[in-house]
């Protein structure tokens, strides 16, 4: 199955893992995803390999960022009219709380999707949706 076929398969079956299985980096950090109605929820299961601060321990800030970027790209692939791998233009992340070594969730909101560019906001949390550990914004070229 090539990537375009995987996108169609994931959208039709609602199985986000079909898409994730194609992306080595997403597999390495352990990203999972689930379609919930017309929304998508992404999960990064607790994994010691993703730690950045072993004393606390806390997740690596880069992994939290990578998880959020992956979520944003997957979100677009799952919901765009004409799915194509989006190319990242820039990424900005604000770290609000320590990412504990536990399950992390991410949700995306597409603020604007034009013909050329998409603006996607991502929120990551662990215990409660309204207690985010990080918020981010990604611009993609479509």
């Amino acid at each position: 199955m090539n990537f375009a076929e995987a996108v169609i398969e994931a959208r039709e079956s609602g199985r986000v893992e079909v898409l994730i299985d194609q992306i080595p980096y997403a597999q390495m950090i352990g990203v999972q995803g689930q379609l919930v109605g017309d929304e998508a929820l992404f999960l990064l299961p607790s994994n010691k390999d993703n730690v950045g601060n072993p004393i606390l321990p806390a997740l690596h800030g880069g992994v939290i960022g990578g998880f959020m970027e992956t979520s944003a790209a997957l979100h677009l692939l799952l919901f765009m009219d004409r799915p194509k791998i989006p190319a990242i233009i820039d990424f900005s992340i604000d770290y609000l709380r320590t990412g504990q070594l536990r399950n992390t969730f991410a949700e995306c909101q597409v603020h604007r999707q034009g013909r050329r560019v998409a603006n996607v906001a991502v929120t990551a949390w662990q215990t409660h949706r309204d207690v985010p550990i990080a918020t981010g914004r990604v611009h993609f070229r479509l």
């Binding site: 992306i23 080595p24 950090i29 690596h60 880069g62 992994v63 990578g66 998880f67 970027e69 990424f91």
Partner: peptide, 9 residues
């Protein structure tokens, strides 16, 4: 390479 790797680097 995934952009997340650059973020981590």
């Amino acid at each position: 390479v995934h952009s997340g790797v650059l973020t981590t680097l």
